[in-house]
Design a protein around this nucleic acid. Structure first.
Length: 655
DNA sequence: GCAAGGTC
């Protein structure tokens, strides 16, 4: 055997083998790792990074090491994927040359470089760079092999170092200062902390929000037996003005149409799914981002959908009709519809990258439960992107009533095309055909008082969209970051609400290490990585500069350590407080058993053994209320988007 | 037990 090609993942290895061998590559396995071979070529896929970065194990005990000491400890790289490492060693020992064919990006370059010390000395190593796994791109890349770009790999390595050093030292500092150790530790990181800060800031806006009253005047109007509504065109902030307008029109019997237009509007189907929009839509279906991603990965592994981690919203040339034929097994009716109304070119989104195609089905199968839901979403979205525009009829009218102009609008779906296969929420509103100058009958008038509403809390979907906008995380990590914030008890609920600990930790970091609470740290790191890649700055310089900033942050943090620790402790206590004990007057607090089960116990234990069970799933709160029947605290439970209150005492008849 | 980034 002569050449060994190493890809970032198995699927890429399989596809590249197929392309380079014109379909005749065969599959083998070594140490359980699949590889592909033909003629003089072997192709194997990694599983992303095979090495992991961590501090040497003598620094593993949090309580024995001052967190800031970690800044000056050299992290070590260890192999994390032994089976793959051994497979590479074995396969390379038979090869004369190696071609690194990992993804064409920073992390891909580093993933490739990580295997280089497993190769025999002096073996020739080349790099194939392609931005799409298509026959054209792949063949070109393998004809024009390049050199490995060590600067590019180093730039990714700088990110690894900086993330580990900042993350680990600050995580330990905050956790130790607040004595939140073991499973209750409080984490800090370049991506998670700015994300948490967004959530906390939003919550503060909500808390500080002062609603402002305003008034609307609405008229009920009739024409040719069709009733509709017209509204005073502006929001009225002044009650006197609202009264004045209302008084003028309340007894009006007719109005005159001063303007009328009716237009047909083409309504283009939504663009193909990239990871972000996919997760956003899943969030609308009340499926969490981590769960949607997990299911998508399973569907992908079972050959039902394309690679789920992509930033691309523009299809490459795909066998669309072929895919539709496969979908017909599960969606016979919908596929017939789509075939009868196919657009000449599928819809294209604004984001275009060549890494992977947008998420689309590649085969069909009857599925159950959440897999069916996610698959259905992806399959229907795909079909919609191939379907003709819907046609909307949009109407607008202005109606003069007692010298005051009111507006009315209408919207109906005139021609339903893509919505037949991908139903979306759209509110239809009937407005009869009108003519300029004609009279309409006023049935009634209403003065409606309303008030401005606070900003909405993030959902997982809207948060992922915001993270992407701010450059926080990647398509492959954003959902995991959000999952982490839940796991660390920083956030709760479907409409994301920060816990007291989140407020306290963000405040503490803002005082001592503000940069890690802002997206700017990522933006700056990106620039520094580019400098390393371009050879304008060294890895050492960038890492050292970053460490210097972190050292300064620690000077501040250590000065305020007690204060910070107290504030967080207090917040955590508040979070775990479940009211006064109705047996002894002590505090009822949330306690975790050795097995990790939670329950409410009395702080005077063992003197007082009062305790109540808690549901193990969902969020539980105490909102200051006690049961009117037995005096035990009332517990608010939030689970699967529902919220209810119950008496902590399960034997109390009140439940 | 810490991060974020790949991937399963």
């Amino acid at each position: 055997m002569k050449r060994l090609i190493i890809c970032e993942k198995n699927i890429a290895a399989r596809r590249i083998a197929y392309i380079l061998s014109n379909g005749k590559a065969k599959q083998g396995r070594i140490y359980g790792i699949p590889y592909y071979y033909f003629d003089d070529t072997i192709i194997v896929g990694l599983k992303g990074h095979i090495k992991k970065l961590d501090f040497p194990k003598e620094y593993a005990k949090w309580s024995q090491i001052e967190p800031k000491k970690l800044i000056d400890v050299e992290p070590v790289k260890k192999i994390g994927e032994w089976r793959i490492a051994n497979a590479i060693r074995k396969l390379a020992s038979q090869a004369k040359s190696v071609i690194i064919a990992t993804d064409y990006d920073r992390e891909g370059e580093l993933i490739g470089v990580e295997i280089m010390d497993l190769l025999p000395k002096n073996i020739e190593v080349k790099r194939a760079r392609f931005s799409a796994i298509t026959p054209g791109e792949i063949k070109k890349a393998f004809e024009q092999l390049e050199e490995v770009d060590f600067n590019l790999a180093k730039s990714a390595e700088a990110r690894q170092y900086i993330d580990l050093i900042w993350g680990a030292s600050l995580t330990r500092f905050i956790s130790l200062a607040s004595e939140q150790l073991g499973k209750d530790f409080l984490s800090v990181g370049r991506v998670q902390s700015p994300t948490l800060a967004l959530i906390v800031e939003r919550e503060k806006e909500i808390q500080d929000f002062v609603p402002k009253p305003f008034w609307k005047i609405k008229l009920r109007i009739e024409k040719n037996g069709i009733e509709f509504e017209a509204e005073y065109p502006e929001v009225i902030w002044d009650e006197e003005k609202a009264k004045e307008i209302y008084e003028k029109v309340r007894r009006a019997k007719e109005g005159i149409v001063t303007h009328y237009e009716c237009k047909l509007k083409q309504d283009v189907p939504p663009p193909p799914f990239d990871t972000t929009t996919f997760l956003k839509e899943a969030s609308h279906l009340r499926i969490s981002a981590p769960q949607a991603m997990k299911v998508a990965e399973e569907l992908y592994m079972n050959g039902l959908i394309s690679y789920p981690r992509t930033d691309n919203t523009v299809y490459p040339p795909l066998p669309f009709k072929n895919i539709l034929q496969k979908l017909a097994k599960v969606y016979p009716k919908e596929v017939r519809e789509v075939l009868s109304m196919m657009r000449s070119k599928p819809v294209a989104g604004k984001k275009f990258s060549k890494d992977h195609p947008p998420i689309h089905p590649v085969d069909a199968a009857k599925l159950d439960g959440i897999h069916a839901k996610i698959y259905d979403l992806i399959a229907r979205r795909f079909m919609a992107t191939l379907s003709k525009n819907d046609v909307l009829e949009v109407k607008k009218a202005k109606i003069n009533v007692e010298g005051i102009e009111f507006v009315a609008d209408g919207l109906i779906i005139k021609e339903k095309n893509w919505r037949k296969v991908y139903p979306t929420k759209i509110k239809e509103k009937v407005l009869p055909d009108l003519k300029k100058g004609e009279k309409v009958k006023i049935i009634g008038a209403r003065k409606i008082k309303d008030k401005t509403k606070p900003p909405k809390r993030y959902t997982q979907g809207s948060l992922i969209v915001e993270m992407e906008k701010l450059g926080l995380g990647t398509k492959a990590t954003r959902h995991e970051i959000i999952g982490k914030l839940y796991e660390r008890n920083y956030i709760k609920g479907r409409s994301i609400t920060p816990t007291p600990a989140a407020f306290a930790v963000v405040d503490a970091l803002k005082e001592g290490a503000e940069i890690i609470t802002k997206p700017d740290m990522t933006a700056h790191l990106e620039q520094e990585m580019d400098k390393i890649a371009e050879g304008k700055k060294s890895f050492e310089e960038v890492v050292e500069e970053s460490k210097e900033i972190l050292r300064k942050a620690f000077e501040l943090l250590e000065k305020k350590e007690d204060e910070i620790g107290e504030a967080i402790k207090e917040a955590v206590e508040k979070q775990n407080y479940f009211g006064k004990c109705n047996k002894c007057g002590g505090d009822l607090i949330l306690i975790k058993s050795g097995k990790g089960k939670r329950f409410i116990g009395c702080s005077n234990f063992p003197k007082c053994s009062n305790s109540y069970p808690l549901p193990q799933k969902g969020s539980v709160y105490f909102e200051g209320e006690y049961c009117s029947k037995c005096g035990a605290p009332m517990i608010t439970v939030i689970y699967k988007g529902k919220k209810w209150k119950k008496c902590a005492d399960t034997n109390c008849g009140k439940n």
